[in-house]
């Protein structure tokens, strides 16, 4: 397996507050990696560093062999970053957003799997409406569709299942699994939904106070799932607690 994402001792700060404290991570092709952590732990900051939206204080982000700091355009070409719904342009229609995003990635046409997912989402009925008339769920769908354009090697999703109805959430999970099964890409998802971690993730990590305090691989996750009940919830809570009280 080749590393699609490699983070090396990543540090980030907002003015004097250190938000990420030397995070190192590697995600291979075909892997669904879930990032867990309490509110304010630094999950979104970590994702924004990967998306080039926050400049790390030190460390390196390498996407499929391309360092984000020195080969920025090449690295972003293979990155599918889902922006937050409020960052979508309210005055453009869904169709225009897709067209612009495809243009920025230099695509000759919109990928058929993305269009198929849009049809399955029931998004096509809103495609010619302006984004500022969309509900949260519809915006979230558009964010995900934009992130999936151009066959990205790394798909970065921040709480992307928030606001999605159960049917659409299931469709998206299956779609991502399908992409992963061909080892075409890797998925990095920041989430609080432990059911996704239990049933879909290949690996997971717990971020507390800007540092990864615990990681689970597939077999560890399988073990927790086999235990049933709220084993994962206990494990996550237990791993986070000492850090919180320290």
């Amino acid at each position: 397996m080749s590393a699609v994402l490699s983070l090396q001792a990543l540090r980030a700060r907002y003015s004097r507050r250190e938000v990420l404290r030397g995070v190192s991570l590697q995600i291979d092709a075909g892997e669904w990696f879930c990032l867990l952590g309490p509110n304010g732990a630094g999950k979104s900051t970590l994702l924004h560093c990967i998306g080039g939206r926050v400049q790390p204080a030190s460390g390196e982000v390498i996407i499929d062999g391309q360092a984000l700091s020195t080969q920025s355009i090449a690295a972003r070409q293979i990155l599918g970053f889902a922006v937050s719904p409020e960052q979508l342009p309210g005055l453009l229609t869904g169709r225009q957003c897709l067209e612009v995003f495809a243009q920025t990635k230099g695509l000759a046409q919109i990928d058929e799997p993305v269009l198929e997912l849009a049809r399955q989402f029931g998004f096509m009925q809103f495609i010619d409406e302006c984004v500022d008339t969309y509900s949260l769920g519809t915006r979230q769908k558009l964010c995900v569709l934009l992130a999936l354009l151009g066959e990205p090697r790394l798909i970065v999703l921040d709480e992307a299942f928030n606001g999605l109805d159960p049917g659409s959430a299931l469709l998206l999970k299956r779609h991502l699994r399908q992409r992963l099964s061909a080892s075409r890409c890797a998925v990095l998802l920041a989430t609080h939904s432990l059911d996704i971690v239990e049933h879909y993730a290949d690996r997971a990590a717990l971020l507390v106070d800007g540092a990864i305090v615990r990681e689970w691989n597939r077999s560890a996750l399988d073990t927790l799932r086999a235990q049933g009940g709220n084993a994962l919830e206990e494990a996550v809570g237990g791993a986070g607690e000492p850090q919180k009280t320290a």
Binding site: G90, L91, L92, T93, R95, Q96, C97, L98, E99, V100, A102, Q103, K105, G106, L107, A108, Q109, I110, L115, I127, D128, C130, V131, D132, T133
Partner: peptide, 19 residues
């Protein structure tokens, strides 16, 4: 968006910076 003129849709979705 209520006050802005919408671009006419071209039917198919093609990469473009027109928007």
């Amino acid at each position: 968006s209520r006050y802005s003129r919408k671009l006419r849709s071209q039917g198919s979705i093609r990469p473009s910076d027109r928007a």
